[in-house]
Deep mutational scan, measured.
Amino acid sequence: MEVRTIKVFTTVDNINLHTQVVDMSMTYGQQFGPTYLDGADVTKIKPHNSHEGKTFYVLPNDDTLRVEAFEYYHTTDPSFLGRYMSALNHTKKWKYPQVNGLTSIKWADNNCYLATALLTLQQIELKFNPPALQDAYYRARAGEAANFCALILAYCNKTVGELGDVRETMSYLFQHANLDSCKRVLNVVCKTCGQQQTTLKGVEAVMYMGTLSYEQFKKGVQIPCTCGKQATKYLVQQESPFVMMSAPPAQYELKHGTFTCASEYTGNYQCGHYKHITSKETLYCIDGALLTKSSEYKGPITDVFYKENSYTTTIK
């Protein structure tokens, strides 16, 4: 009895394709271990004539594949690729409408935090270190965002349907971005203890939790000093293409032309909904596939993004 075979390709990165001759009487799992086709788990399936010449994702289970996976995804987590594939199996079914010149995501599976993050990423200057993220990001900007969303979920250790947080998501993504040249110098002034300067680099240099107003941050924000008295913390120097200011959701007025974009969060910790506000020729609110415009805006804002380049204080 002759062994019926077909020729397929296996890959971990969709760049390096490895030619395989597979036995049609055995499952993919018996031949390769966990195997995925377009995100779908085909591990328990036997090869079919229609699979001839198709590319299958496999887990990096030998040295060659491990090197290829690390170079593309910059992670050695053995569960990463499987999590990416199972997320992709959902995100490829989502709709990605162009809204006001940006790629958004039609609401499904509690994905409003991903839509808000995706919209924000198209408006701030950011370059990702893992080629996987950078490639998928370019495709997302062009309207094909399924891979990018699935990668975000995998890097953030999230599953489809789980509630997510924009600030946490951005923080994970910033860790995989090139923020080497970003720098922030802060000064804390206390009447009792004097003053202390701190220099922050990388992710810490672009994120701040405690106030939404970048102007206020430049002037000074009140913080408790270690001595128990009130101290003032203010920005001395900022070198970065953008800054992200966050605070627990509270009524906040966004003035046209003073910011790049913002995240609105309605609801409580267990259950809520994100919308995205962007400042173009007027203010726009993007909620999944829905767009509304207004000249002014007041609502429960939790993150505001500002364009920056270089700032030095005039406070002496």
Rank of each mutant, 00 (worst) to 15 (best):
P47A: 12
V3A: 14
H90Q: 12
S79Y: 11
M170L: 13
F32W: 15
H74R: 06
V304T: 01
D38E: 13
E52M: 11
M24V: 12
D135R: 08
E296Q: 12
A140V: 14
S246E: 01
H176T: 03
P60A: 09
N61D: 15
L235P: 03
R141Y: 06
V160A: 08
K218Y: 01
K280E: 07
G29R: 09
N111P: 09
V8E: 04
Y252V: 10
T198G: 01
L163H: 10
G82N: 14
T192G: 11
C156D: 00
K219W: 08
L163E: 08
I301R: 05
I286A: 01
V206G: 02
D23V: 12
C227I: 02
T116D: 07
M209H: 15
T120P: 06
K275R: 15
D135F: 08
C190E: 03
H18W: 08
H48V: 11
F217D: 01
A115G: 04
A250R: 10
G220N: 00
D62R: 07
Y155Q: 06
T11H: 00
Y306K: 13
Y306L: 04
Q122L: 03
P241V: 01
C156K: 00
I286P: 05
E71T: 10
S213R: 10
N110R: 01
G210H: 01
G53I: 08
K93R: 14
E308T: 12
L254G: 00
Q195F: 08
K127Y: 08
D109R: 03
M170V: 06
Q230R: 10
G194M: 01
A108E: 12
Q230C: 03
L153S: 08
D135W: 08
N49W: 12
L17A: 02
S246N: 02
P249C: 02
N100W: 11
F9S: 14
E125V: 03
F56G: 03
Y306T: 05
D287K: 00
T64E: 15
I152T: 10
S79V: 05
V99A: 08
G143R: 01
Q122A: 03
M26F: 14
N147M: 09
G202I: 01
A231L: 02
N129Y: 05
P241K: 08
G29F: 10
N147R: 09
L118Q: 04
Q216A: 12
K218E: 03
V304P: 02
G53Y: 11
V8Y: 02
Q237N: 08
I223L: 08
R184C: 00
M209F: 15
E168V: 12
C156H: 01
G228Q: 08
A140F: 04
P131C: 03
E144A: 08
W107S: 05
A69G: 06
M85G: 04
F80P: 03
A117Y: 10
E204S: 09
A115F: 08
N49E: 09
K275P: 01
G53P: 04
Y73C: 00
Y36K: 05
A150F: 05
I124P: 07
T76P: 14
V160K: 08
G272K: 00
V243Q: 03
R184D: 04
F305V: 00
L121W: 04
Q238R: 01
D63N: 04
K219N: 12
S86A: 15
V243F: 00
E296N: 14
N100F: 03
L102I: 04
Q222K: 14
R4H: 14
K44A: 11
V221G: 04
P34L: 08
S25E: 14
I277K: 00
T43N: 04
Y269I: 15
T91L: 05
L212V: 12
A140C: 11
T226C: 12
H51C: 03
Y284Q: 10
T169V: 12
V22S: 08
G194A: 05
P97D: 15
Y306V: 01
A108M: 05
A205G: 03
R83I: 10
S295H: 11
K127N: 13
Y72G: 06
E68D: 07
E68T: 06
Q238H: 07
L173N: 03
C193H: 03
I277P: 07
D109S: 03
Q195I: 14
V243Y: 02
T302A: 15
T27I: 11
V243P: 01
V185E: 11
L290K: 14
T76W: 08
K7S: 13
D38C: 10
K233R: 14
A146G: 07
V189F: 07
G220A: 02
K92M: 13
L153V: 07
N268L: 15
K95P: 03
E52A: 12
T192K: 07
A150V: 03
Y265R: 00
T103I: 12
T211S: 08
P241N: 08
I277Y: 00
E264G: 12
A262F: 01
Q238G: 04
R139S: 12
Y297F: 12
Y284N: 04
N129G: 06
V42G: 02
M209P: 00
T64G: 12
T292S: 09
Q196R: 13
T292K: 11
Y72K: 09
S279L: 03
Q98K: 10
A205S: 05
A250N: 11
T5Y: 10
D287I: 01
P248M: 12
T64N: 08
L163A: 09
V3W: 11
A136C: 03
T232Q: 05
E71F: 06
N14S: 12
A136V: 01
D63L: 08
C261A: 07
G257M: 04
T76M: 14
Y284C: 15
Q222F: 09
E281P: 09
I15R: 14
Q230Y: 12
I286L: 07
E162L: 04
Q238T: 01
R66Y: 09
L65M: 14
G288A: 02
T35R: 13
Q230V: 12
S104T: 00
C227G: 01
V22M: 10
H256T: 11
K46P: 09
N187P: 02
F259R: 03
L126F: 15
T199A: 13
V67T: 13
N147A: 09
E308L: 07
S25G: 09
K280T: 09
K127F: 08
D303H: 00
A142I: 13
L163Q: 01
I45Y: 12
S295V: 07
T159G: 12
C156I: 06
A142G: 12
C156M: 10
F128T: 02
L290Q: 14
V42E: 04
I6K: 11
K201R: 15
H273A: 02
C112E: 01
L153N: 00
C285Y: 01
P131M: 06
D303P: 03
K316L: 15
H90W: 09
T266G: 06
D13H: 02
A289V: 07
S25Y: 11
T313N: 15
K127W: 04
I124M: 04
S263F: 03
H18S: 06
S294Y: 14
K307D: 07
R66P: 07
I15S: 14
T198A: 08
C261W: 00
A40W: 12
L121F: 07
L119C: 06
H256S: 09
K298N: 11
I277L: 03
S171I: 13
V99P: 00
